[in-house]
């Protein structure tokens, strides 16, 4: 049971965090919002967009404002798993092997252009993201909480990219698509970057304890039975063999969302309600979360790919077809 003080503290901390991020990032409110949901839900975020849209800046700003340890891994085709996780090196003084942690050992890890690395290296993140631990040389090393992986990727159509394996994609709680800024936002970006000293990262407004407290508060938010039932029905409707699947899903979807998708719906709905200043979850929360939670979890079949169907269209059809409680 949470106290009023904890509730107030968590709310104030996140109000400051949003202000700090808004001072640096122009536009992209939706992406920032999804990033905060991810933080509050204890998940990981996959940010997709063409180069130059400020993905890396957003992650750096977030990490800095949160006051968390931050590390950046630039994924390249020759990157090896040991470069991420760390390795055992021989220490001459003690004449024994000593574990040297890799960049994964941080609160906020920016995996930049994650789909430029080979699948083997990408797979090195699997254990860290799900189990929040790393096993090297037979020894397991826990990761420090809060632990958030914010990965960016270029669209897979671009040169020199490797699609992420489904198992790894599923480990990202949400996926955010960074869109191109409109004219007003572009002008503001130009002004901030070219006038004065340019962009300066914000000072930390939170600490790891605040993040964990906020997660506890959000965890106390109630999601009643009918809303859980609604979320479950939405997930089941994404399966082509499901009884409640709409026609579009039956035609164009190869694999539907996993149970992790259902968790993402509920966690995200709670976080959204918290950030909206409410104390209860609504159906609108679940519907709004649906796209970032399931966008990367639904695999289209060949027919869907060939006919240019997008997952967004499928999800819109799912929302239409599933009646609310």
């Amino acid at each position: 049971m949470i106290t009023e003080k904890e509730l107030t503290q968590a709310q104030e901390a996140f109000t400051k965090l949003r202000e700090a991020i808004a001072a640096v990032i122009v536009g992209q409110e939706r992406v920032v919002e999804i990033a905060l949901w991810t933080l509050l839900s204890g998940g990981h975020l996959l940010v997709e967009g063409v180069p130059g849209l400020g993905k890396t800046l957003l992650v750096r700003t977030l990490a800095r404002a949160l006051g968390l340890s931050f590390s950046r891994i630039q994924f390249t085709p020759d990157l090896m798993p040991a470069d991420i996780l760390g390795t055992n090196v021989f220490a001459e003084d003690t004449e024994s092997f000593r574990f040297v942690p890799g960049p994964i050992f941080a609160n906020v890890v920016l995996a930049d252009e994650i789909n430029r690395a080979t699948p083997k290296t990408q797979a090195a993140l699997l254990e860290a993201m799900q189990e929040r631990q790393v096993t090297v040389g037979g020894k397991t090393h826990p990761l420090e909480e809060p632990f958030v992986v914010l990965a960016t990727q270029n669209p897979i159509e671009m040169e020199g990219t490797y699609p992420l394996p489904e198992a790894q994609v599923d480990r990202f709680l949400f996926k955010a698509e960074v869109s191109f800024p409109d004219k007003g936002e572009l002008v503001e970006i130009l002004r901030r970057n070219t006038e004065g000293e340019g962009i300066t990262l914000p000072d930390p407004v939170m600490n790891p304890g605040d993040v964990l407290l906020a997660r506890r508060v959000v965890g106390a938010y109630p999601v009643s039975g009918p809303l859980m039932d609604y979320a479950a029905r939405l997930i089941l409707a994404t399966h082509p063999n499901g009884l409640a699947a709409p026609e579009a899903v039956r035609r164009y979807v190869q694999y539907g969302a996993s149970p992790r998708g259902a968790l993402a719906l509920v966690f995200g709905a709670k976080a959204r309600a918290f950030l909206a200043g409410r104390y209860h979850v609504t159906m609108d929360d679940i519907r709004d979360i649906l796209e970032p939670a399931l966008l990367h979890r639904i695999i289209l079949n060949f027919r869907g790919e060939a006919e240019g169907i997008t997952v967004k269209e499928i999800l819109q059809e799912v929302v239409r077809s599933v009646p609310p409680p």
Binding site: M1, I2, T3, E4, L7, A220, Y221, P222, V223, S224, P226, L227, R278, Y279, H280, V281, T282, M283
Partner: peptide, 24 residues
């Protein structure tokens, strides 16, 4: 859905959140 949320909070005994919700 606030009424349902309040019911759920009361069922769990989350007094602080319930009070806040009842005010809102």
């Amino acid at each position: 859905e606030a009424l349902l949320g309040a019911w759920e909070l009361a069922r769990r005994g989350e007094t602080v959140l319930l009070e806040k919700l009842a005010e809102v």
